[in-house]
């Protein structure tokens, strides 16, 4: 998922505004967590080799961050990986282990500081 264009929660809000938009402390307009980036948690990053990828989606299903970006065709029949969203990827490495060894389209590399 690309970083959201609209950022509604950057400014801390006062109680009067919250009483209107967040009565009982609810969060409206969910999900809002894409406004919070977790990419800086990484110490290692997965590198994707598009040429080797068979788009089996195993990395996508086991990614806890929903950071495997997909392109879904309009008729829904073609689902392809298009990359890794480093805004959110925490670098856990699950995708690398999920990628079938014979395909080996994902590899961990040190995070560039």
């Amino acid at each position: 998922m690309p970083a959201p264009k609209e950022r509604k929660w950057d400014e801390l809000k006062g109680w009067k505004e919250l009483a209107e938009i967040s009565p009982g402390a609810i969060v409206p307009g969910v999900p809002t967590s894409p406004e919070y980036l977790t990419g800086d948690w990484r110490v290692e990053r997965p590198i994707w080799d598009e040429d080797k990828c068979t788009h089996c989606l195993l990395c996508w299903v086991f990614c806890p961050e929903d950071a495997i970006m997909l392109n879904i065709s309009e008729d829904g029949k073609v689902v392809k990986m298009i990359g890794i969203d480093y805004d959110y990827c925490k670098g856990c490495g699950i995708c690398v282990r999920a990628c079938p060894p014979k395909i080996h389209a994902l590899e961990m590399a040190p995070e560039e500081v």
């Binding site: 801390l12 809000k13 006062g14 109680w15 967040s22």
Partner: peptide, 9 residues
Amino acid sequence: DYFFEHKRG
């Protein structure tokens, strides 16, 4: 950062 504002409401 938010509890006090919600409680204040």
